[in-house]
Amino acid sequence: VAKRKCPDHGLDLSTYCQEDRQLICVLCPVIGAHQGHQLSTLDEA
């Protein structure tokens, strides 16, 4: 199974943004649109 990539940063989608209910990469909460959002690992989601 191919991993999905972040459209903004090109990295694997490895984190779940609880606020926006979507998968994001590790850079999205650091330099992207998900700064300050509640996050979960994929195992927790």
Rank of each mutant, 00 (worst) to 15 (best):
L39R: 11
V30I: 10
L11Q: 11
Q35P: 03
E44Q: 10
Q18R: 09
L42T: 15
E44H: 15
G10H: 12
K5N: 06
T41H: 07
H9G: 00
C17K: 02
I31S: 15
V1I: 14
H37W: 00
L27P: 02
Q38C: 09
V30N: 09
S14G: 13
A33S: 13
L23C: 06
T15C: 05
L13I: 05
D20P: 00
Q18W: 05
C6F: 02
V26A: 14
T15P: 02
H9T: 00
A45M: 11
L42S: 14
G10A: 07
S14Q: 12
K5V: 06
H37E: 02
G32S: 03
K5G: 04
L27H: 08
D8W: 07
Q38K: 14
L42V: 13
G10P: 01
L11P: 01
D12A: 06
G32Y: 01
V1D: 06
T41I: 06
C17W: 00
C28R: 00
A45V: 11
T41N: 13
L11D: 04
E44D: 09
S40V: 07
K3A: 06
C28F: 01
E44K: 09
R4I: 09
L13C: 10
A45T: 13
G10W: 03
L39G: 10
D43V: 09
L23G: 12
L11V: 05
Q22W: 02
E44S: 12
C6D: 01
K3T: 11
K3Q: 10
D8Q: 14
D43P: 12
I31V: 14
D43N: 11
H34K: 02
Q35H: 13
E44G: 12
E19K: 10
E44Y: 04
G32A: 03
A33F: 04
Y16L: 09
C6K: 01
R4M: 13
V26G: 12
A33N: 11
L39C: 08
S40F: 06
E19F: 07
K3I: 14
D43G: 11
Y16R: 09
C17P: 01
R21V: 04
C6P: 00
D20N: 03
D8M: 15
L39S: 11
H34Q: 02
T41F: 04
G36Y: 03
Q38N: 14
G32W: 01
L27R: 14
C28W: 00
V30G: 05
Y16G: 03
D20R: 08
R4T: 08
D43C: 09
D12L: 05
H9F: 00
S40C: 11
L23K: 10
A45R: 12
L42R: 13
Q35L: 07
D43R: 08
G32M: 02
T15W: 04
Y16I: 15
R4E: 09
T15N: 13
H37F: 00
C6G: 00
Q38P: 11
D8A: 13
T41K: 14
C28H: 00
I31F: 06
L42I: 12
C17E: 02
Q35M: 11
H37P: 02
D8Y: 15
L42N: 12
V1M: 10
I31P: 03
Q18S: 11
I24C: 09
Q22I: 07
A2L: 10
L39M: 14
L23V: 09
P29Q: 08
Q22R: 12
I24T: 09
P29S: 13
H37Y: 01
I31H: 14
C25V: 00
I24K: 06
A2F: 13
C17R: 03
V26S: 15
H9M: 00
Q18N: 12
A2S: 14
G10D: 12
D8I: 14
Y16A: 04
Q35E: 11
A33L: 07
E44M: 09
E19T: 12
G32F: 01
H37V: 01
S40N: 06
G10V: 03
L13E: 06
R4G: 09
S14W: 05
E19M: 06
Q22E: 15
I31Q: 14
Q22C: 14
L23N: 07
V26W: 08
L27A: 09
K5Q: 05
D12P: 10
P7T: 15
K5Y: 04
T41Q: 13
L11C: 12
H34N: 02
L42P: 14
V1W: 04
H34P: 01
I24W: 01
K5M: 12
C28L: 00
D20W: 00
R4N: 15
C6Q: 01
G32E: 03
A2C: 14
Q22Y: 13
V1Y: 04
T15F: 03
A45D: 12
L23F: 05
A2Y: 11
C25K: 02
Y16M: 11
L39K: 08
D20T: 04
S14L: 10
H37M: 02
P7M: 10
L27S: 11
G10K: 07
C25W: 00
L39E: 11
T41C: 11
G32T: 03
S40P: 09
D43M: 08
G32Q: 03
Q38W: 04
L42M: 12
Q22L: 08
G10Q: 11
P7H: 05
L27I: 06
D43E: 13
S14V: 13
V26Y: 10
D12Y: 06
A45C: 09
Y16Q: 11
V30K: 15
S40L: 07
H37L: 01
L23E: 15
R21K: 15
Y16K: 08
T15Q: 14
I24Q: 03
L13T: 08
L13G: 03
Q22M: 12
S40D: 10
E19A: 09
I24G: 04
A2N: 15
D8V: 13
V30Q: 14
V26R: 15
C17V: 01
C25N: 01
P7E: 03
D12F: 05
L23T: 12
E44W: 05
V26E: 15
C17F: 03
D20S: 05
A45L: 07
K5C: 05
L39F: 11
Q22D: 11
H37G: 01
I31M: 13
R4D: 13
A45P: 12
A45I: 15
T41Y: 07
Q22F: 03
K3C: 03
E44L: 07
V1Q: 05
C25R: 01
G10S: 08
C25A: 00
Q38D: 14
L23H: 08
V26P: 14
E44V: 08
V30H: 09
H9C: 07
